[in-house]
Amino acid sequence: MKTAIEIENLAHNYGLVKALKPLNMSIESGTLFGFIGPDGAGKTTLFRILTSLLLPTQGKAKVLGLDVVNDFRKLRPLLGYMPGRFSLYQDLTVEENLNFFAKLFKTSIEENYHLIKDIYDQIAPFKNRLAGKLSGGMKQKLALSCALIHKPDLLFLDEPTTGVDVVSRAEFWEMLRKLKNHGITIVVSTPYMDEAALCDKVALIQKGKILQTDSPQNIMENFSKPLFSVKSINRNSLSKDIETFGKTDSFYWFGDSIHWIGSDDKDADLLRIYLQQKKHEDLEIEKINASIEDCFMDLMKGNHE
């Protein structure tokens, strides 16, 4: 399999702030790759270096076989890039924006229409509306259409789903899966942990450091600590009581239940007895598989400096 991105000892500092700590990794072409991490983890910095917009402080990166520093002229036309904030011309209409970006890349809407058809069809009824007046979900679709109009070999999407509702987010990922089938390598970043499962491969990133890189399935399966879901009708006192239970590695709320990690499986039985003594009725404790968020939080704890 061909390599789309090759990163060697890459790092970036803003003054004294280490935005990106030395990093080695590669991304295979044809994959849907996700950088998963909170704001300020270094995702945008990494994307800007890989799109040749920012010079790295140290290290090397090759994108599509081209060096991001020296070969940036050859590289740029091959990339599609959708920056984190909405960066289209708000005072141009939907169609004018798309036309502009097509001309910018010396192509036409017709030439690559097959690529954007699914996406653009949804906003086509509003093609004469100013881009600034579109709703969030539609802006996002227009931005994606504009980034795709020149049929890039590699697409960088920086937090395309941030601040977008669940429904639009689901639709957006659906579109990305279809695009992948056109043979485009897609690199996407997101702060939403649940979206990791939709990628072929992910890198969990925090405080400028990659915590782990693998397929989401492998990451979840390799979580070795005993993880239990704890549910009780008496929600308010549940976390307080778990706090006073001695043998706890960590516990976090996940919606209506607490994800509890002990040192081994037997601790869970002790926890059950302890909580029953504390008069928790309808207590449900069951062993569960880790989600990406469980893994991320566990890795985060080891990344304090």
């Binding site: 740029r76 990339l79 890039y81 920056p83 984190g84 909405f86 960066s87 970006f101 890349f105």
Partner: peptide, 13 residues
Amino acid sequence: ELGTMEILLVSPI
């Protein structure tokens, strides 16, 4: 300011 410069720079122009 709007961030469109980012896209322009990444384009062949």
